[in-house]
């Protein structure tokens, strides 16, 4: 393996984006959706997640380390591409560009989001509905979160397509096309779940 380090790292990068990061993303957005059913049900769910056994170890090994690896190698990948969507105006080429673009947007968003929530909770803030309500009632932050959620979900859905192709599951043009539609559906559904939650926090509906 040592001699194929680049191969190993890139395949690991692709895998980590789906498991665990992609699974965490879905879990995160689904659990947050409790906000739509009211303050109390969100607080119950959030405190359940926050009080999971070994929560810090789970966070480190399921979220922080994989995310850090994915982000650092990802930024390197972004800078090794020379985007040419103007000259080669094809759908896949656009998705290739957007995958890199949303990767960077998501990285900025997550850094801010982690600082504003997890770090503040660690410093003593209460993890409850009020924390998110306080952030999202500001229109600027609401739109920042909308952009952040959309780009994270796009990056996940299109990355899932990339994962299936780069591991060799989807080979034929037909299968790749069907996977494109399937991941588009995932993008729409997961985006709805995320945005709906943001609206609940921001406008209380």
């Amino acid at each position: 393996m040592a001699e194929n380090r680049e191969f190993f790292y890139r395949r690991l990068h692709s895998l980590l984006g789906v498991v665990p990061i992609g699974l965490f993303l879905i879990n995160h957005l689904v659990v947050n959706h409790f906000a739509v059913y009211g303050e109390e049900s969100f607080n119950k769910a959030a405190s359940f997640m926050h009080n999971l056994p070994f929560v810090l170890a789970l966070e480190i090994f399921v979220i922080y380390l994989p995310l850090l690896f994915h982000a650092i190698l990802g930024v390197y990948i972004v800078f090794t591409a020379k985007n040419n969507v103007k000259r080669y105006n094809f759908v896949r080429n656009w998705l290739f560009f957007l995958q890199r673009f949303t990767g960077i947007v998501t990285l900025v968003f997550i850094a801010w989001h982690v600082f504003e929530t997890r770090v503040q909770v660690a410093l003593g803030a209460d993890l409850d509905y009020g924390l998110m309500e306080g952030i999202l009632t500001s229109p600027v932050m609401f739109w920042f979160y909308v952009i952040g959620v959309l780009s994270a979900v796009f990056h996940f859905a299109n990355g899932l397509w990339g994962f299936l192709v780069s591991w060799g599951f989807a080979q034929s043009p037909r299968s790749q096309k069907i996977v494109t539609y399937a991941t588009l559906l995932i993008f729409l559904v997961v985006s709805y779940i995320g945005i709906r939650t943001l609206i609940a926090f921001a406008y209380g509906v």
């Binding site: 191969f7 080669y88 080429n93 290739f96 990339g162 989807a170």
Partner: peptide
């Protein structure tokens, strides 16, 4: 090698010989 591919799939669009390059890449990925 293979992992340098980011699946922008321009290659298969421009190949003058119509070679199924992206299918080849996915097959070699597997």
């Amino acid at each position: 090698g293979l992992v340098g591919c980011g699946n922008a799939q321009n290659c298969v669009q421009v190949c003058p010989k119509g070679i199924p390059l992206t299918t080849s890449i996915a097959a070699m990925n597997r």
